[in-house]
Design a protein around this nucleic acid. Sequence first.
DNA 1: CTGAAAGCGCTAACAA
DNA 2: TTGTTAGCGCTTTCAG
Lengths: 331, 331
Amino acid sequence: MTNIRKVAELAGVSVATVSRTLKSPDIVSPGTRNKVLKAVREAGYKPNLMAVQFRSRRTRNLVVLVPTIANTFFARVISGIQEAAQQQGYSVLLCNTLGREDMEEMYAGMVTTRQADGVIQLRAYNPFPADAYAPGTPLPMVNACEVLDEAPCPTVKLDNRTAARVLTEHLIELGHRRIGMIKGPRRSPLTRDRVAGYCDALEAAGIALDESLLCPGDFTPHSGYEAAGMLVAREDPPSAVFCESDEMAIGAIQRIKQAGFSVPGDISVAGFDDIAFASFSDPPLTTIAQPAEAFGRQAVAMLIEVLEGGMPPHTTLPYELVIRGSTATKR
Amino acid sequence: MTNIRKVAELAGVSVATVSRTLKSPDIVSPGTRNKVLKAVREAGYKPNLMAVQFRSRRTRNLVVLVPTIANTFFARVISGIQEAAQQQGYSVLLCNTLGREDMEEMYAGMVTTRQADGVIQLRAYNPFPADAYAPGTPLPMVNACEVLDEAPCPTVKLDNRTAARVLTEHLIELGHRRIGMIKGPRRSPLTRDRVAGYCDALEAAGIALDESLLCPGDFTPHSGYEAAGMLVAREDPPSAVFCESDEMAIGAIQRIKQAGFSVPGDISVAGFDDIAFASFSDPPLTTIAQPAEAFGRQAVAMLIEVLEGGMPPHTTLPYELVIRGSTATKR
DNA sequence: CTGAAAGCGCTAACAA
DNA sequence: TTGTTAGCGCTTTCAG
């Protein structure tokens, strides 16, 4: 093991000088600096970062809590996180929580045990025990994508309600009045907000809400497939279906076609997220594009600010209605 | 900061006893053990794992080098890695390398700087500098999925050649003789092996190889779309296309349909991987199913064995030909 | 600008 | 079974 002491000996200086040369080269004289650098090279010295971190009480690790990495939307968010973290000199500790709160709590505990400096939570749940931090102390966390209503930390989100409203309005403008909805998990604020936006649009258009047109889903293609099955089995299927994720929309389209309906001829289908496959589905999906990577980058920037003692404001990212071939005029 | 010393004082024992109580409770007497545990609770003591790791020279972190997390196949592999690591008490440091060797080298360097114990590399590249370890010393690495030919470490792979052969044979049995292929990145051993398997099948069936039927791709849907464009623009398009990934197959299907051909009526299409969307494409994709999560779990198990001084053998995981609606008899 | 020295919080000989 | 003690490799006062 070649450590700082060896380098110091080799350079004929003290360990303090070696440390200084590596951390703040400008405060050591050019002469010694060169000697030290040369010794570092000769010894093939790599600082033991475990010791550095231990000593300086910072790991530069960020824990990321993701509900399912298998969801392509989250995969993109993580790309963004990773990219930004890397640029700022942080590493990403990934936890695929599958929405399990015990997992989330356990990984958030890595901050308590000093294995990480902060956490980015992509789900609406606070993984820190109530007594972990004194009241008033900011949590070393940023909550992104699926956000708590009364988050105890800064958040990065979309205006889901308005986005859902805009998408529903698009459907209404095409002449649809019976619009089905395939929802996300029941207790998610995301689901609630998107349903609210859907209701807003119906109400503004003077269309009565038919609760039986709202089906539960869990964001997976399979759940979209199942939910669409309920819808097409009705005597009076809707002429359009709004799915709360592209993955569910893709599943729904398959089921609708299997039932003998054409998309968008008989039934229009819209999604949410704009994942890569959205434009490759048949027909290509009309959807709300979310800036997934930007969610990740923004969350990192804000978390670092929090870790440095700042208190960044809640942030709302823009969405965009992307109209493709899966929605058409009601015939 | 409540540290081990405080707990020791509170319990009226030495720090060593506290340490022992926490690490190997069975070697301390029940009486002291209870005293210590009580003090731990009262003090709300959480061991500083940074110190533990520093002292015991193990981080229990595993670096994972993934070419693109946005690829759903890799996302599944990572799920498997995460799950297995977690069970064994390891955490996952994720790096989305985008195939950049400098990134891979940098993150592999986390082992050198003791921020991680080992690396799982999912691409055919050795990220360690040649002189990092003495010749003969096993590298703290496992190479999975896309594997080096002369890997300097244990590997987990598929028999890509045979799998490709089996898939091609399926196409040949359906009567196809002009079979296009959309390949992966040129220099990848994966591409080479799958092309070899494709050639094996042709040769066994007495079909001459037509190199012009082989198109380059990069595993993304878009590249599949583009490559299929070349194929359908020919005077004599193939009657079947073998894509080296499902994502490319999904892109290819879209392009083929756009050109006015039906799938599988006019042109059969097959993929590779069996990602979740494979069964939701239209038509559902015939493909080679790879045990993605198993790749991850296996890689973790083997890496831990390596870290413990073992030398696990190279492992080959099973594949399965999954026949769905995208391939049919040549008409 | 440089060096000596005191730890960070914990583990692991070694003694008792 | 328990305590004493010497560090792990590094940073950071505090003197010089």
